[in-house]
Each structure stands twice: as structure tokens, then as C-alpha cells.
């Protein structure tokens, strides 16, 4: 390869790794599909009170359960409530749980992992030991227990799920920081005399962001699944609030007579999970994150 000699000429615009990743992501059709589905679901959830065809508590006991029709696109449940409305409102809760609990996990996990990884030594050993111990705890059982003991409370659900999911996030962040710390460009930054805060912000965080973004995208569906699981068992969201898990639970009880009550909420949940997983996989490839931890 020829080395460049001084030459005049226009400044060539470089392509940052982010731009590169975005170009790769756009080529991945499944990931784009995921992104589109996700964005539209989020918009629908935000606009639900204005676009839902019926009021949330609109019952029509005379009507009862009816299959999809022009008046009720997705049919009605045994109380004559419009299923589309139910799904829209349920989606608000399901998506909210997914995003909020993931945000909780992200906040705790990234901070914990970054501190442990950067400080190192004994602090790191103690912090990660704690993570190991918590990892060994059977959290699923604990969440069930919490829900039983303290009653079904949405806020508690956010916190409980967030508290479970931060562990992996912390491990990933610590691993990232540790690898990056040993990279020569961080040593170079130290030898330039940059302060630790600058090193973390300018040199560590931007490079650790890729895996964190990927893992966040993949945490949201597992959180939503957890909420749906609890709601299905009757331990999560409780009426009059609803969520997709709860709707599936009701649908399963009456699926012999009214299968649409199971199929449509199920489709909504599955489609969202698909979208998120495809997007996560796409991001993983686009950002070239190796070695997943799931």
C-alpha cells in the first residue's frame, strides 16, 4: 500500500462508525421492519386515548362476545368490550413496563458496571461478588413472592423487574470498561494528561455504547415477557388496568368458544417481541458486537 504524500485537495469527509452502523442496519430488512413496527406501536400507545374506537370501560353486556365485525374490528369480549380498545390500552401498560423497567436496569447496571470496571481492585471484587450472589438467586420466584406479599402494584413491578435485569447490564458494562481500559488509546489518553472524567466521557463511554444499546434492545422484550408471564398467572397488572399478558390469560380461558380473544392479544405481544428481537439482532450485527451473553 502506498503511503500518502502531501497533496493538495478538498477535505474528504470521513464516515464515523455510527454512520457505518446505520448504513449496515438499513440494509437489514428484518431490523428495519422491527424498527418500523416498534415506532408505530409506540406512537399508537401514546395516542391511544384519542384514537381508541371506544371508551376504555365501555361495556355492553347485551352484546357479549362477538367475532370481528365492522363495528368492532377485532371483536368484543364476554362483557361486550371492544377488543381493539383493550389491546391498545393493554399495549400502553406492556410497553411502559418494558421501557421503564429497562431504563431502571440500564441506570443501575451501567453505573454499577462502569464504576466496578474503572476503579478495579478490591472495590471491583466486592461489587462483582455481590452481582454473582444476586445472580444465583432465583429471581422469578422472588418476584412472584413480592407480588403476593405486597399486592399487585405497578410501580413495584417496574422496580422488581428492573432490579433483576440490571445484573447482566452491569456485567456487560464492566467487561466493556475493563477491555477498553487496557486498550492503547486509553493509555495514550492517560499519558496525554487527561483527567479520569474526560477519559471516561470522551474515550470509554462512546466505545462501550454499542453493546449497551444492543443489550438494551434485547432487554425490553424479555422484560415485557416477564410482565406478561406474571399477569398471566394473575400476579401482575390487575383489573381495571389491563396488559397484553392479562388479555392473553382471559383469552386462554375462553379460547374454545372465542378464539379471537386469545389470538389477537397474542399476536400483538408476539409481533412486538419479534420487532424488538429483530432490531436487537440487527443492531448487534450492525455495531459488530461479539459474544452475546444471553
Amino acid at each position: 500500500m502506498n503511503e500518502p504524500i502531501l497533496e493538495a485537495g478538498a477535505v474528504e469527509q470521513g464516515t464515523s462508525l455510527w454512520k457505518d452502523a446505520w448504513i449496515r442496519l438499513r440494509r437489514n430488512r428484518l431490523a428495519v421492519f422491527g424498527l418500523v413496527v416498534l415506532v408505530s406501536f409506540v406512537i399508537l400507545a401514546l395516542l391511544t386515548p384519542w384514537i381508541a374506537p371506544y371508551a376504555y370501560d365501555d361495556q355492553n353486556l347485551d352484546l357479549g362476545a362477538t367475532p370481528p365485525s365492522a363495528a368492532h374490528w377485532l371483536g368484543t369480549d364476554i362483557f361486550g368490550r371492544d377488543l381493539l380498545t383493550q389491546i391498545l390500552y393493554g399495549g400502553r401498560i406492556s410497553l411502559a413496563v418494558g421501557f421503564v423497567a429497562t431504563a431502571v436496569a440500564l441506570l443501575i447496571g451501567v453505573t454499577w458496571g462502569a464504576v466496578a470496571g474503572y476503579v478495579g481492585g478490591r472495590v471491583d471484587a466486592v461489587m462483582m461478588r455481590l452481582v454473582d450472589i444476586l445472580y444465583a438467586l432465583p429471581f422469578m420466584i422472588f418476584i412472584v413472592l413480592l407480588m403476593v406479599v405486597f399486592g399487585r402494584n405497578l410501580l413495584l413491578l417496574f422496580l422488581a423487574i428492573g432490579a433483576v435485569e440490571w445484573l447482566t447490564m452491569a456485567r456487560i458494562m464492566r467487561g466493556q470498561v475493563q477491555t477498553l481500559r487496557q486498550q492503547e488509546f486509553v493509555e495514550a489518553a492517560v499519558s496525554l494528561g487527561l483527567s479520569p472524567a474526560t477519559i471516561i466521557w470522551r474515550h470509554l463511554v462512546p466505545n462501550a455504547l454499542g453493546p449497551i444499546i444492543v443489550y438494551t434492545t434485547l432487554t425490553i422484550p424479555s422484560v415485557m415477557l416477564l410482565e406478561a408471564f406474571l399477569s398471566f398467572l394473575g400476579l401482575g397488572v390487575q383489573p381495571p388496568q389491563t396488559s397484553w399478558g392479562l388479555l392473553i390469560s382471559y383469552g386462554a380461558e375462553t379460547m374454545e368458544e372465542y378464539p379471537w380473544l386469545l389470538i389477537f392479544p397474542g399476536a400483538a405481544l408476539t409481533l412486538t417481541l419479534f420487532a424488538l428481537n429483530f432490531l436487537g439482532d440487527g443492531l448487534r450485527d450492525a455495531l459488530d458486537v461479539r459474544g452475546s451473553t444471553d
Binding site: L225, A228, F232, I248, S249, L269, T270, N277
Partner: peptide, 8 residues
């Protein structure tokens, strides 16, 4: 399989 929860 991953996106289709057990209870569905």
C-alpha cells in the same frame, strides 16, 4: 420460539 411466550 423465543417470541411466543409459553402461556400463549
Amino acid at each position: 420460539g423465543i417470541c411466543m411466550p409459553t402461556f400463549l
